[in-house]
Amino acid sequence: MNRIEVEKKVLNENQILAEQLRERYRQLGVLCINLISAPGSGKTALLERTLERMDKGSRVAVLTGDLQTENDAKRLAKFGFPVKQITTGGTCHLDAKMIGKHLEDWKLEDLDLLIVENVGNLVCPSSYDLGEDAKIVLLSTSEGEDKPLKYPSIFLKSELMLLTKIDLLPYVPFNADVARENARRVHPQMEIIDVSSTTGEGLDRWMEWLRARQERAKAKLQTATVPH
């Protein structure tokens, strides 16, 4: 019997594809974000408000994942930006291969921002790198404050948490301080922004976060292309 040390990631194939995507985004200065939450936390509603606030000429595109239906793509297409539905047919997460395939007939060089809306699920999407610059997790006030403790993986891997449906706070038994504290217990450095897609509260801060990250992606591009 011969023991071979392997030391490679189980999802090595996905990781390779994700790194290739990340490198393409980096070379073109495209910011890619991956939105993850439980079903019904308000990913699509947030994207509607986000696209609505974008300037007409913004170079933004959306890939939206679901098990079935084109409903989300239809909801998001109204704003005039390229939107494509990824229907997984039952798979509970998106993977890098699906992203690569759906980007085939888009010109990445025409984009500044690529938003990926993952399948509603707090578990599986956390295992699959899509080549994004940042994972963003949404937690809504109609869920439990202890979700960060129950599903730590995704909260640990996300740079930003959006506490959504903040306008419902007076009507639900949700303690926002406890939710934030739980999120910070899992991931002390995570940024948190409270938002409501209904009243618009916090959306300016969210848009500002997006702008700042886009500038960072562009700045990296300039440093990389300065001739020596």
């Binding site: 023991r3 030391e7 002390p188």
Partner: peptide, 21 residues
């Protein structure tokens, strides 16, 4: 100190294989 970094627990790695040659 409260600021501590996660250095283990995120693994999903193939460590080894055993082969009968």
């Amino acid at each position: 100190e409260f600021l501590t970094d996660c250095i283990g627990g995120e693994e999903l790695d193939i460590a080894y294989m055993e082969v009968d040659e």
